Amino acid sequence: DTLHVTQDGKHIELRGLSEEEIKLVEELLRRGRKVEEALKIIEELRK
């Protein structure tokens, strides 16, 4: 699936995420994380 995010005035499209990963990214962003940080966390969880 694809998640569309706008952060720091930039539109970012995150592709290839599972539904659970999207929920996790959304939660991390709500808690003030940056998109880059959220993606690093997803990458770690995929290992």
Rank of each mutant, 00 (worst) to 15 (best):
E36S: 11
G9K: 01
I12T: 04
R33Y: 15
T6C: 09
R33C: 09
L29E: 01
E36C: 06
E37Y: 11
L28K: 01
V5H: 07
I41K: 06
K40M: 14
G9L: 04
L45M: 11
E37I: 05
H4P: 08
L29C: 03
L24R: 04
K47N: 14
K47A: 15
H11F: 12
I22N: 05
H4A: 09
R33Q: 14
K34L: 12
V35C: 02
E26S: 12
V35T: 05
T2P: 09
E21N: 01
E21R: 00
L17P: 00
E36M: 09
R31P: 02
R33N: 12
T2C: 10
S18C: 06
E44K: 05
L28M: 13
E37V: 05
S18P: 01
K10H: 13
V5Y: 03
A38K: 00
K47S: 15
E44I: 08
G32I: 01
T2K: 09
D8V: 04
K40L: 12
R31A: 15
V35I: 12
I41P: 00
A38N: 00
R15K: 15
K23N: 09
E26M: 15
A38D: 00
L14C: 05
E44F: 09
K40T: 11
E19L: 15
E20L: 08
E27P: 01
Q7D: 10
E37N: 04
G32H: 02
E26T: 15
L3W: 05
E43M: 10
L28H: 05
T6F: 14
I12P: 08
G16K: 04
E19F: 14
T6I: 15
R31C: 09
A38Q: 00
K10D: 13
K34E: 08
Q7V: 11
K10N: 12
E37C: 06
I12A: 05
E44N: 07
R31H: 13
K23S: 11
V35G: 02
Q7A: 07
T2H: 10
E20C: 07
I22Y: 09
V5L: 09
E43A: 09
E21S: 01
E19I: 14
H11D: 14
E21G: 01
G32S: 01
L45A: 09
R31Q: 15
L29W: 02
D1N: 14
E13C: 05
Q7T: 08
R15W: 14
S18R: 07
L14W: 03
L45E: 05
K47V: 14
I41N: 04
A38I: 15
S18I: 04
R46T: 02
T6S: 09
I12G: 03
K23C: 06
E19A: 14
E27I: 11
L28F: 12
L3Q: 08
Q7G: 09
E44S: 06
L45S: 04
E44V: 07
T2L: 04
R15L: 14
K23V: 13
R33G: 13
L39V: 09
H4E: 11
R15E: 13
E37S: 05
D1Q: 11
T6Q: 13
A38P: 00
G9I: 05
L39N: 02
T2R: 06
E21D: 03
L3K: 03
E27T: 09
L3G: 10
I12H: 14
L14A: 03
E43G: 06
E37M: 05
K23Y: 10
G9V: 03
R30G: 10
R15Y: 14
E44M: 07
G32Q: 02
E43T: 06
D8N: 08
G16F: 07
E44T: 06
L17E: 00
L24S: 03
E20F: 13
R30L: 12
S18N: 09
G16V: 04
E21Q: 01
R46F: 03
T2V: 15
V5D: 07
G16E: 08
D8G: 07
L29M: 11
E36Q: 11
E13L: 10
S18A: 07
H4L: 13
L29H: 02
G32E: 03
K34M: 07
G9F: 04
I22C: 06
D8I: 03
G16I: 03
E19Y: 15
G16D: 13
L39Q: 04
L29Q: 03
T2Y: 09
H4N: 09
G9D: 10
K47E: 12
G32A: 01
Q7H: 09
K40D: 10
R30K: 13
I12S: 05
L3S: 10
E36I: 09
R46G: 02
I12V: 12
G16R: 03
L24F: 09
I12E: 09
K23M: 12
V35M: 07
K34G: 10
L17C: 01
G9N: 08
A38C: 08
E20Q: 11
R15V: 14
E44L: 09
E27C: 02
S18W: 04
T6P: 06
D1T: 09
A38G: 02
H4V: 15
V5F: 04
E20I: 12
T2E: 08
R30A: 11
I42N: 00
I12N: 07
V5K: 03
E43L: 10
G16Y: 06
K10W: 13
K40E: 11
K23W: 10
E13F: 11
H4I: 15
E37K: 03
E19M: 13
R33K: 14
G16N: 10
S18G: 03
R30P: 00
A38T: 05
I41D: 04
H11Y: 11
E13A: 10
I42R: 00
I42S: 00
V5N: 07
L28N: 03
R30I: 08
R30D: 10
E37R: 02
I41H: 08
E43K: 04
E36T: 08
I22S: 08
L29N: 01
E21V: 01
E36N: 08
L39E: 02
E43F: 08
T6L: 15
E26C: 15
I22P: 00
L24W: 07
L39W: 07
R15T: 14
I41W: 09
Q7M: 07
L17I: 03
E27H: 06
L24G: 02
L29Y: 02
K47H: 13
D8H: 02
R31S: 13
R33D: 10
E21L: 02
K10P: 08
V35P: 08
V35E: 04
L14K: 02
E43Y: 10
L45N: 07
E20P: 11
E43R: 05
I41A: 09
H11C: 09
I41Q: 07
E36H: 10
R31T: 13
R33V: 15
G16S: 05
V35L: 12
G32D: 04
T2Q: 08
L45Q: 09
V25S: 00
K23D: 07
